[in-house]
Design a protein around this nucleic acid. Structure first.
Lengths: 372, 372
DNA sequence: CTGAAAGCGCTTACAG
DNA sequence: CTGAAAGCGCTTACAG
């Protein structure tokens, strides 16, 4: 195909900007320049405008010209420069997805829903993992804003922190003002953006009631960082439902760990160390519950005969655990689809909130409390 | 901040291109235009060039001008247009990551390594899940090429299909010729690009030998689609090692399923249905093994006392399974870092191949075969 | 150190 | 239906 390479125009008004790896001339062996629409037009012997029209299918173009353009594009393996298109059209084909960690099954399932929906709309997903660093989260929003992403999706609990909220708003507000779309999952309403909101409080309360019905009266909770809204809601809902039944949840029965398998392991271990006499333990997320399950096993404590254990989320793997995990099921993949769809809809006068209810699923990690 | 909004120049050589949501004037309530460098320069009363220099820190700029530019940018909440930058600089800040499914723990772990490394280099990751559709894979490469992604990473087994190989090369070759970088994980060498190659064959062979040492002589294998190179290598390595020990692997003891939890469940069920008398089953991936474990349990077959089970990959969860899974451990996150790093290095004369060896980890799903 | 201006690769009203 | 040309928002040699 070398002989097909069109000549660059011999005369430029001024010298071309030198670019690394963009050598012109005969010795472009390693790293030639990209083929441009101009190249295609020249080879098809039509104007730039015509070539553009053919390739975008906007207007009618005479069949023979059309053929020539298509042939030229294919022969040159032309790929339009998305940046130039984005600039000229003032819109991009990408959306941004910010989560804490894609390798966490919870986010992975949601990301699956998001990417599938995005693909259906011909959009590309730019993925960012913050690893729970608030600063990095703000930085990513700035990058996505620079990318003129069509929408920015914030997945995962926000931080209860005024300073963070301010700097986040400082990025988000101008983005929205300029026409950007923002949708979030599991956030406090402080952000005033379209939201998909799992009913954490209600789900945890329903779980508490089912656990009480099993006969439990001594509970412990494995929580994540208190600064996360999800933690506040799930813990609050659980505690309130217990209180309604006249069952207290002593402070020393609430152990904090990170929202991870190891965090759950550590928190459960700490619980054991404290000599907890809880007959039922609620881990605020399934991922923590998995760690707790391992910790109990490690300490020779049988689940559920000695202690019952419940999680929250219903990530795919927990069905296959032995014993299978009791949890509050959330339609994770569907939630991903919902946030993406929400962000694709025209903005509303006031922010929308889609509530997602959780469903308690009693599996094998919970049973009646052991006899005294 | 409304009063700070700089006036647009009153006179244009011709009317501004009308853009949806880009209204000028007083009623830009919903969806104003983005703030541009021009706006910043005007407010700081400097030239465009100076504003650009300050914001990029390239050249020295007089301190007072510098201050003014910085102040203006911050007051206007300026975010540079990455597309314009990409166009002017002829390079972008994004890399593309193509995998089969992010929500699969195997890919999730690798994606984690990739994104972490990308972040360290200030790069954004564009993520695409193909859900194992070869056509979609080629389409994504085209999109990433259009985005002028700095690098394209292909994660996951390729397809043994001439037609697919051709169309993939048709996209990849011009991309590489134009200076794009490509690195792949688990591919056949046909693609001639930098590769991180887990030693599937050797790992499976080592596993076979350890299983033989345990006393097993009757094996079965749960495979994925034969068109995947990973399947060919793992199955081949396993079978060859058995053959070396004079142990056959009958064709009817090799059951094919999809590379997923459900595929593993189905394949194991089929094995049971066939009345297999294998004492040891090798699932080609951990994800399949998880499904198989559930299937055996479902059929009342105890692992490992009645049948031993082994997987491959060592995804994070398998340590927490009960019984914990015997497998061939691959440094998944590290592999993600390696592909990303490979793609960031200058291209070599001939493609590099980094071999990653797997390590057999005997856990609780394997034991000596039951007495006859 | 600073500014005017060309150029990056497209799209699209405007005038045939 | 087609082409010449402006404009999208930046960067960066070039000439002070």
């Amino acid at each position: 195909m070398k002989e097909h390479r069109p000549e660059r125009p011999a005369v430029h008004a001024r010298a071309k900007t030198a670019r690394p790896g963009a050598a012109d001339g005969p010795d472009d062996a390693g790293g030639g320049a990209h083929v441009t629409l101009q190249d295609v037009a020249r080879r098809a012997e039509v104007s730039l405008a015509t070539a553009s029209r053919v390739l975008n299918g906007t207007t009618q173009v005479r069949p023979d010209l059309r053929e020539r353009v298509l042939a030229a594009a294919s022969e040159l393996a032309y790929a339009p420069n998305a940046h130039a298109q984005a600039l000229a059209r003032a819109s991009s084909q990408a959306i941004g997805l910010i989560c804490h960690d894609v390798s966490d099954p919870y986010f992975a399932a949601i990301a699956r829903g998001v990417t599938r929906t995005a693909t259906e709309h011909g959009l590309l997903v730019m993925l960012a993992s913050t690893f729970r660093d608030p600063t990095r989260e703000v930085d990513y929003v700035a990058m996505l804003r620079a990318q003129r992403a069509r929408a920015i999706l914030l997945i995962g609990s926000g931080f209860e922190d005024r300073a963070w909220e301010r700097s986040m708003s400082a990025e988000l507000d101008p983005y929205v003002r300029a026409g950007g779309r923002v949708a979030v999952l599991s956030r406090h309403r402080g952000l005033r953006v379209d939201t998909v909101q799992p009913e954490n409080r209600e789900g945890a309360a329903a779980l508490a009631r089912d656990l009480l019905a099993l006969g439990h009266r001594d509970f412990a909770v494995l929580t994540g960082p208190r600064a996360l809204t999800t933690v506040v809601d799930r813990l609050g809902g659980f505690r309130d439902a217990l209180a309604e039944a006249g069952v207290p949840l002593p402070d020393d029965q609430v152990v904090e760990g990170s929202f991870s398998r190891d965090g759950g392991f550590a928190a459960a271990t700490e619980l054991v160390r404290r000599g907890s006499r809880a007959t039922c333990v609620f881990a605020l997320t399934d991922v923590m519950a998995i760690g707790a399950l391992s910790a109990f096993r490690h300490h020779g404590i049988d689940v559920p005969s000695q202690v019952s254990l419940a999680g929250f989320d219903d990530i795919p793997i927990v069905r296959d655990l032995v014993p299978s995990l009791t949890t509050v099921a959330l339609p994770l993949e569907g939630m991903g689809e919902r946030v993406m769809s929400l962000a694709l809809r025209a903005p509303a006068r006031r922010s929308r909130v889609e509530r997602i209810s959780g469903e308690v699923v009693l599996r094998a990690t919970t049973a009646a409390p052991p006899e005294l």
